[in-house]
Amino acid sequence: MKIRLLLLAASLFGGLAASAAETRLLNASFDISRELFNQINPAFIAHWKKQTGQTISINQSHAGSSKQARSVIDGLEADVVTFNQVTDVDAIASKGLIPSDWRQKFPNNSSPFASTIVFLVRKGNPKGIKDWDDLIKPGISVIVPNPKTSGNGRYSYLAAYAFALKKLNKDEAGARDFVAKLFNNVPILDTGGRGATTTFVQREIGDVLLTFEAEVFLTIKELGESKFDAVVPSYSIEAEMPVAVVDRVVKRRNSETLAKAYLEFLYSEEAQNVVAKSFYRPRSEKALQSASAQFKPLELFSVEKVLGDWETVQKTHFGENGVFDRIYQRKQ
């Protein structure tokens, strides 16, 4: 009896994950990727079984991308991270848990799929919102998550800023004024992407929601074509969805092979088709072609080409007393 109690205590305190190390994988991911990995994981489990005969299981953890980065830094034993912002993986790399050259480990800068920011409006688009300049008009209520805590918010902010830069011939002061006007129209800043969707959809606040294209189409599919319409602006941001193996964790759990295979699988035709069906933009030309009907054409820009490297962008716009802090304080 005593021995059994000891064993129970040991299994509780020794970490539940350690017992079957290599056959279990933990994927720490961003908030709105739930539906995507719900479909990809069974496909990979079947694929791995066919290849090696081994039965594995994959655990998922979902929260805001930056919150997940914080958790991994604090010791969450995720074998792989699948985030929606490069800066979040960089944050983990800066603590030495991921090698700093992680973007060279997988194709397409280690980003197996992408998305962009588009608009969700109420059915029939009663306010006639077509492009970014419509969002700064007086009387338009815009829902967007907080750019300081969420990827959606950050990409939305940067897309608006880059649109203004392009329109105003690179006038930075003018572009700052543009985003200030836009955020002046934002009544609530939710902390995460799904929270903002709930505010717009369930609490029925706002005329337009800015979020990932994947979230816009998923919302329309899940919650009713009769209630919402998607509006695709003329110009938007390429939102890379970076992935990385957490070296420190896989080395100690002896799960490196499995973790690598999992991330490589995301680039396979099978997974890329699931990606496209979940309204993310796949990297595979074939998968993109077959889903071309759902992706309306628009001009996409890369943050690093238009606004500079992520570290500088992060510091200038979202750091303490950065541009966002200043325009948002001015509002209050």
Binding site: G15, A17, A18, S71, I73, D74, L76, E77
Partner: peptide, 18 residues
């Protein structure tokens, strides 16, 4: 992991947080 006892716990493979 970044906490006061984080390194020690980690070295001894004891998981408390998460």
């Amino acid at each position: 992991l970044q906490g006061y006892f984080g390194r020690w716990l980690d070295d001894h493979d004891i998981k408390i947080i998460f």
